[in-house]
Design a protein around this nucleic acid. Structure first.
Length: 422
RNA sequence: GUGGGCGUAGCUCAGACUGGUUAGAGCACUGGAUUGUGGCUCCAGUGGUCGGGGGUUCAAAUCCCCUCGCUCACCCCA
């Protein structure tokens, strides 16, 4: 029995890598244009970083982390998300000393031990951006714009921005009290999950898709009606800036995200073509996280988006990306005895900066031509007995089928001219 | 963790309900179509423990049980 790939992981094969490179290129280009600098943090961190950052009672921390002990028996965890590590790096590297406001973006694999389904994997890839050090509502709007600009550059359509505010410590505590008391009589009619949530994380009840829970929640006032003056003002400002940027959004009072660290702004970008897991991007403000990790009180906001889901949505929408253009030169030989000469010539061409390939076994010329075609070679050099005896080789244009004799010593220069590489 | 669907050639799938000769097709791959030339066409060939194990039967890809895997959905999220 051959060894198989672990559940929920996937190989990105050569025929797919073009899309990945393309998407990653666009992400980096747009993020840089918006003034975000790339950061790469380790794939694993000490477990407590996530436990404290994301929240002890969240689904991710309680049941979805890949956690293991190192040789000194310290608990490590494969990162399930990117924000906590970035904030850790921000503090540890004292980035607050470099700029008053720090703008970072990242790109890389994340790990969650969930049951895979469409658009969900155990190893998946996220890109995201964080802006640390300002509470201005402008940057909340900018983060959303950055997301949308990446999608726009990629050609994605049918996106919808969902927006909510989850308040701060003060107003959330007030609201939770109100929420609990207003559904207290109906607690027996909640689903089993929500009964637990009532005590552990009542805010999540708002997000429950269960029909009976929904009918109960309907009567409950929205969190946004309980926002304190400061949060209310911030929420209005975010919307003001979104309108200035002509960004359409839908207010969703039931939008609650899965991490405990969110405050005020919470948003999600969904794509209809994605199936059940339709969030292609999500994020929000996290004004207490830096402090939680031992820094001084520092407001921040960020987002994360899924590369697999981005690519999935692009495929659903039949969006084209640059295709593999093939090699420039294929070296074919008629006579097996010319094998040494062919090999030497092949490497010379490559050293001259021109992509080249040949057949390493000994096949018929027809077979070699087929290979040249399959590799999408633009030119094929044919080493023929008769031509070589006159110190010449054949250069065939694969598209026009024109071929001409070239003196051996002039072939490299000829190729450089053809491909305009000097 | 719970539930539905599906596992037959490298890929996409027929065949299974109504067990019965050497399990098929298309694509891909390799070779060939007067011996030095690709894409199209034609011909031929390579390739399968029918996911695995057990059972029923004279006989199992086909019926029954178990198991593994994939997939979609729930929970939650990118």
């Amino acid at each position: 029995m051959i060894i198989r790939i672990p559940k929920g992981t996937q190989d990105i094969l050569p025929e797919d890598i073009e899309k990945w490179n393309y998407v990653e290129k666009i992400i980096k280009e747009v993020a840089n244009r918006f003034g975000y600098r790339e950061i790469r943090t380790p794939i694993f961190e000490y477990t407590e970083l996530f436990a404290r950052g994301i929240g002890e009672s969240t689904d991710i921390v309680t049941k979805e982390m890949f956690t293991f002990l190192d040789r000194k028996e310290r608990s490590l965890t494969l990162r399930p998300e990117g924000t906590a590590p970035v904030v850790r790096a921000y503090l540890e590297q004292r980035m607050d000393r470099l700029f008053p406001v720090t703008k970072l973006f990242y790109l890389g694999p994340m790990f969650r031990s969930e049951k895979p389904q469409a658009g969900r994997f155990r190893q998946f890839h996220q890109y995201g951006a964080e802006i640390i050090g300002t509470s201005s509502a402008q940057v909340d709007a900018e983060i959303i714009l950055l997301c949308l600009e990446i999608f726009r550059k990629l050609g994605l359509k049918n996106l919808e921005v969902l927006l909510n505010s989850v308040g701060c410590k003060k107003c959330r505590a007030l609201y939770l009290r109100e929420l609990k008391s207003s559904i207290h009589q109906e607690i027996d009619n909640l689903c089993t999950d929500c009964k637990k949530r009532y005590y552990k994380n009542p805010l999540r009840i708002l997000d429950c898709k269960n029909v009976s829970c929904q009918s109960i929640i309907k009567k409950v006032p929205a969190l946004t009606q309980y926002l304190c003056e400061e949060c209310q003002e911030h929420f209005q400002e975010v919307q003001k800036y979104l309108k200035v940027l002509n960004i359409e959004y839908r207010l969703d009072p039931r939008l609650v995200r899965g991490f405990d660290y969110y405050t005020k702004t919470a948003f999600e970008i969904i794509c209809k073509e994605l199936g059940a897991q339709n969030a292609v991007s999500g994020g929000g403000r996290y004004d207490y996280l830096v402090e939680e990790f031992g820094g001084k009180p520092t407001p921040a906001v960020g987002f994360a988006a899924g590369i697999e889901r981005t690519i999935l949505a692009m495929q659903q929408q039949k969006i084209e990306w640059p295709k593999d253009s093939g090699i420039e030169v294929f070296v074919a030989k008629i006579n097996q005895e010319k094998e040494l000469f062919a090999f030497e010539l092949l490497q010379k061409i490559r050293m001259a900066g021109i992509s080249a390939e040949m057949d390493y076994s000994f096949r018929s010329l027809k077979g070699q031509m087929r290979l040249a075609d399959k590799l999408k070679a633009r030119y094929t050099i044919i080493l023929g007995e008769e031509e070589l005896s006159r110190d010449r080789i054949l250069l065939r244009n694969m598209q026009t089928k024109e071929q001409k004799e070239v003196e051996i010593e002039k072939i490299i220069n000829e190729l450089k001219t053809v491909f305009n590489k000097f």
